[in-house]
């Protein structure tokens, strides 16, 4: 049930990311055509492009968090003995959760202040821009939690099967 929900969210995010990257390319392409060919440059293209870009980056960061394919340096940690590595990874994931919590908490602290201003061109409340930080923190946090739970289950299973072998 929980896994199904998490999968659905991931699927939705994937669709959003594909749409956003296409729209970003399309908007900026349109802007060139309008300016160069028709001499009627749109006023909104830059701001809308930036807005979609921010959300796309946050959403892809969430996907990458679930896949555990963030840029990272794994070779030293791979040298650790299994048990120690498991403990260390769990510890560092808990710290990562802490940072997600900061994103949520601080994002909500600044939200009311920034939301009182609107973006200069499209008039989108800056709240919609800054909301990406707590939303990103929440989604990343959820998937990190999933990873922690999964890795603990795997670890326990592996240990018990090893014990069986010894018997």
């Amino acid at each position: 049930m929980i896994k199904r929900t998490l999968d659905t969210i991931e699927l939705a995010i994937k669709v959003i990311c594909r749409v956003f990257i296409v729209v970003i390319v399309a908007i900026l392409f349109y802007a060139v055509v309008m300016r160069y060919v028709f001499h009627r440059p749109p006023s909104w293209s830059i701001e809308l492009g930036r807005f979609l870009f921010i959300w796309m980056v946050i959403f892809t960061a969430v996907l990458v968090t679930r896949e555990q394919s963030h840029m990272q340096i794994t070779f030293l940690v791979n040298l650790l003995p299994k048990r120690l590595r498991f403990l260390w990874l769990t510890f560092s994931r808990v710290l990562m959760l802490g940072f997600c919590w900061l994103m949520i908490q601080q994002g909500l602290v600044i939200y009311p202040i920034v939301a009182s201003a609107a973006s200069p061109c499209l008039g989108i409340s800056m709240g919609w821009w800054y909301l990406s930080i707590p939303v990103g923190g929440l989604l990343m946090g959820v998937y990190i939690l999933e990873t922690i739970v999964k890795s603990i289950i795997d670890h326990v299973k592996m240990n018990s099967s090893e014990e069986k072998c010894i018997c």
Partner: peptide, 8 residues
């Protein structure tokens, strides 16, 4: 009277 062209 000009063509206003927004640009970063």
């Amino acid at each position: 009277g000009a063509i206003g062209t927004p640009m970063a």
